[in-house]
Structures are given as C-alpha cells and as structure tokens.
Design a protein around this nucleic acid. Sequence first.
DNA 1: TTGCTCCTCACGTCACGTGAGGTGGC
DNA 2: TTGCTCCTCACGTCACGTGAGGTGGC
Lengths: 147, 147
Amino acid sequence: VASTGVESCELLGIGAAAARAGVSERALRYYQELGLLTPSGATPGGMRRYSGDDLARVARIRELQSVLGLNLDEIAVVLGNEDRIAALKEAYHSAAGDDRGRADLVRECLALESDLRAAVKAKQEALAIFLAEVDAKIGRLRSLLDE
Amino acid sequence: VASTGVESCELLGIGAAAARAGVSERALRYYQELGLLTPSGATPGGMRRYSGDDLARVARIRELQSVLGLNLDEIAVVLGNEDRIAALKEAYHSAAGDDRGRADLVRECLALESDLRAAVKAKQEALAIFLAEVDAKIGRLRSLLDE
DNA sequence: TTGCTCCTCACGTCACGTGAGGTGGC
DNA sequence: TTGCTCCTCACGTCACGTGAGGTGGC
C-alpha cells in the first residue's frame, strides 16, 4: 500500500509529511479535525507523526477532491467504505465471523463502489461533450485564419 | 445562441432567471459584482432583467466550474476570450479593420482555446485512470463474493 | 542559549447561503 | 391596502491560507 518511498518504521513530522504530500500543514490538521486522517503516531509532547499509509490517504483525499469534485463530507463516506473493504479482506483471510453477514457487507461495499463508478462515468460524459465543443470552436477559428 | 426557450424580446426578473438557470439569485448578483455577467436590461427602479443570452452565459459559468473545476477568476479569462471570438466573427462579416491585426487576434484566441483543450485532455486522462482503479476494486469485490 | 519545528488560537478568503429590513409596481 | 418580487447590507459556511504568539527537543 505504501508506495511513497517512506519506510513504515520511520514516521514523518507534519512539515516533512505536508511537503511530501504536496499539501499545507493546515490542511493536514484540518483533515484530522474532521476525522478524515488521524496521524499514525504522536510524540509524548503532542507532535503528529505521519506514516506512508497516512500520506497515501492524503493523496486519495486530494484525488477525490480534484478529479471528482467531492467535498470533505462526501470523501469521508468514500474513505469509510474503502476502510471497510480493507477490513473485509482481513476478515476473509483469517477465517473469522459468519459467512452470511460477511457476504452482505461485501454486497454493500460493492453497491457504494458502483455508485462511485457511475459518478466517474457521468463526469467522463460531460468532459467528452465539452471537448467536442472546444474542438468545434478551434476548427471554426482555424477556418477563419484560412480566410 | 439563445436556445433556452426565452424570446429575446422578453427579459426575465432575477427570480425567474435564477429558477431557469438553476442557480440562486445571490449567485447572479455575485457574478455581476465580479463583472462576469451584467444583466442585459434594467428597470428605472433598478431591477435586473436577464435575456436568453444571459442565461446561456450563466450555464457556461456553471459548466466551467463543475466540469473543469475552474474558479471565477479563471472563468473570467475564458469568458473574455469567448467574447473576443464572437467580436472577431462580427468583424470578419463586416469587412472592417486591417487583416494583419485581425489574423493576430485569431491566433491569440486559438492559443487560449488550445490551452483549454489541453486542460480538458488532462482531466480526461486523470478520470480514465481513476475509472480503471474503481473497476479493479469492483472486480476484487466480485471475486470475494464468489468465495 | 540558539535555531528549528511544532503547537493552538484566530482572523482572512472564495463562492456563495441565508435571513433582516426596506422598496416598488400590479 | 395587500401580496409579490425585488433591493441592499451583513453575517454564516466550507476548505483551507496566513500570520501571532508560545512550546519542545537536538
């Protein structure tokens, strides 16, 4: 999961973490305030320590903001679902719990992921139409140049 | 240009205009405050009157916000360019002005439209990657269901 | 002790939302 | 006169930006 070049043993301070993630320290503190991202570690003095997984989570938040235009409330739902999926995989590997309830959980996660997929598809459609309009405008400008 | 079902002779009050455009009255007043959209008409009493072209401009603003994620400063640039293109077409039909300067203007508009096209392409690329990830996650969940 | 990084308020910004209180034409 | 729509402040919200002033470990 941690493909950011940070070993899982060494945790970063908020300054280094913000620099690596390409966000502000304020943003990291704000995500924590909203319960979106709790740093993996802390010093006795109350300083935040971020892991590679934490940085991956920050990247995911920014992606959901910029690519899909979700707000932080909506992102909390998506991240919550992804956390549940990860927990489900753990539960499947260790053969604990009842199969009946677990299958229901998987179906629930699948439904939420399908909703996300539909949102992406809708965005793609809108972008394709937009691109066609821009291309048409460019074509008309080109023909204007050829008198 | 006006394909919103509003005849060009009858201008709408801000309430009807906002309802048709699917935005708030506050948003229309805010766009005017920023110089993005000046209503085509006004009553002696100081009430705003919106034309079909005004509504099309509002739709364009919302499209640039939601599809491309531009802020209102960036949208002002795009709209300014589109206004110049429209003015250029007028100038080409009436054979006024010098051909030399006009061609330069067209080239300038073309450059800005090409920038816009590049932004759209980048968004498409990001969305395609995102969709592939969602599909992979859905596939893994489906295989979990098949035990 | 000196830097450096970190901490918590707390006010500013952008794109509006949402009343508060008053005006204007059928 | 009564509704209805419109007007201008003006404060609230979301996702942070940006200092202000103080703390903590090498």
